[in-house]
Nucleic acid binder design. Structure first.
Lengths: 154, 154
DNA sequence: TATATTTGAGACAAGATAGTCTTAAATATG
DNA sequence: CATATTTAAGACTATCTTGTCTCAAATATA
């Protein structure tokens, strides 16, 4: 598996926020409801993103979470780094510690190239990119496709 | 993590076999010893590769395992498929079932391209490729670098 | 101020992966 | 044939990931 489930949920949650107007806080309960993710689990994941400085939160009624930066300034790699860490983009494919150009494993060259492709993709894709593409094509971000991209500015 | 630990061990075990003369069976005990992998665990993994038809085995003294095909006919993707399955190369990056060109998620396009890069790398790299590169550069396939590429034709 | 709402923190349970151990079956060799 | 060696099969434990639940802290609002 490329990304952990926590990381995938974090991405979908962040994408949800990026697709909404960012002027108001949105409760995690509503997000978990719309994305069909366990509320408690999503809460824990959104807390990680808040701790990492990607979101800001407010407690109490009318509270919730929202993006700290504009969505076009948030690359996917930041979410991956916050939840899964950078291991995927730094570690050896054969699991050998300290593998690199100086002390490579036999697979290092090929994997380093492939790994860079993944890294560039994650660095160059922003939440706004995905939100725009999703809105234009009315693409789903839930398993059953019930999510709709209408502005959630309640 | 891209590949499971079982898969990584399987790759290293298969690479070990490809770097040896394939005329004789080699005991998993020796392999696990040279590669510094738990013998019991490696046995289980090599059994999976045998069941998948990548290795053949023989019990008893002078028994062990060896590649069923020549190393240049075994692409890495076959080992990945046998141990981790093809999920990495078929599944949606956002975890949505049935994601594809017909019913994509917002990340589908970027991920499909990246996923193809991984697939091509695994399909085009053979055990012999890695063994040759390892022998030429005397590269390590153990954490501490104690593995040596001298023919193991005992 | 009292109440309802919402995040924060962390204990806890369930499930998957990683790793160990025991026993059985096959087989080479003396 | 007896024995030692080696894979095969599967039970078992440990650790990590995933998911649930409870309670505390903050806060908007009546």
């Amino acid at each position: 598996m490329l990304l952990s489930k926590s990381c995938i949920y974090g991405m979908r949650g962040a994408l949800y926020l990026a697709s909404s107007s960012n002027s108001k806080y949105i409760s995690i309960k509503q997000i978990s409801n719309d994305l069909d993710i366990s509320p408690h689990f999503l809460t824990k994941i959104m807390q990680e993103l808040t701790k990492a400085g990607l979101l800001e939160s407010q407690k109490g009624p009318k509270g919730g979470v929202r993006l700290k930066k504009d969505g076009n300034e948030v690359a996917l790699v930041e979410i991956v780094a916050a939840i899964d860490g950078m291991d995927l983009l730094t570690e050896c494919a054969l699991g050998l510690p300290g593998c690199g150009t100086a002390k490579p494993c036999p697979l290092h060259e090929q994997w380093a190239d492939t790994r860079d492709e993944i890294r560039v993709m994650l660095e160059e894709t922003t939440l706004t990119d995905l939100a725009r593409k999703g809105k234009e094509g009315n693409l789903r971000i839930t398993a059953d496709g019930t999510f709709d991209w209408l502005p959630k500015d309640n």
